[in-house]
Design a protein around this nucleic acid. Structure first.
Lengths: 130, 130
DNA sequence: ATAGGTGCAAATGTTTTGCTGTCAA
DNA sequence: TTGACAGCAAAACATTTGCACCTAT
């Protein structure tokens, strides 16, 4: 664990163990339900707090669909975006679509792939000046 | 507009106009604040309802970060995912990272790109059987 | 001993929804 | 005329936070 001030509690160890024992990319609530089987008094807040800390320390990865809010684009055609982590602004990226990627994944997974979404994160040109 | 039963109300037209006049990929609340300048009595619920309908009809695109919940992955290394729109399950994709994409976007935008996220959507193998 | 963690419940912030009245087609 | 839509407020939802107590180091 990267942060040396982070204590290994029973709850934290359990959450890590649960997450590492599944390939299902679970939600916080699913992890909470699982955790209660071993520690019936564990609270949902503790699960969230630990998931956040473990993400921040690089121990696990969070794929967030829940924090934040939706953004809307008047261009309904698929295109790629860059999101500035400093100012929060979103920019269009002038890059041609990787149309063949869908076919590739379709073959690899045997799934029917309808679309994909590609997003870049970092610091935009203006925010780098500060 | 694809759905012929969709009525063009003053509110809907305004929301579309606002969204088309900006490149800022605004949030629902930002659109609401703008809309109130022309229609002070418009409600936030109306803005959300229209944005949802316009997305569904393919008129605009929603980039959602607000609906749903986060999912967690015990593998903190960047890798790509497939999300089944039928059963909601998420699968890892065995595809090598496009590391050079970050450089490309960095040059195009003049931004500092730290990472990217690539996700595929469709119907997984199992759900196709039904 | 003490800084960090826990459980609990209340708060937060975005988005959805029930209801009643209104208006575009 | 009428079914889709508006405004309003309450509900829903995942997630965060304040607080008093607890525990790993």
């Amino acid at each position: 664990m990267k942060n040396s001030t982070m204590r290994m509690t029973e709850q934290r160890a359990l959450i890590l163990k649960i997450l590492r024992s599944t390939k299902s990319h679970p939600t916080a609530d699913w992890i909470y339900q699982e955790a209660r089987k071993s520690l019936p008094n564990i609270s949902l807040g503790t699960v969230y707090r630990n998931l956040r800390l473990l993400s921040a320390s690089g121990e696990i990865m969070e794929l967030d669909y829940g924090s934040g809010y939706s953004r809307f684009d008047s261009n309904p055609e698929n295109h790629y975006h860059f999101l500035c982590q400093e100012c929060g602004r979103m920019f269009d990226i002038d890059l041609k679509l990787f149309a063949d990627l869908n076919d590739l994944v379709e073959k690899t997974l045997g799934a029917q792939v309808k679309e994909h979404r590609l997003e870049f994160y970092g610091i935009c040109r203006e925010c780098q000046k500060h």
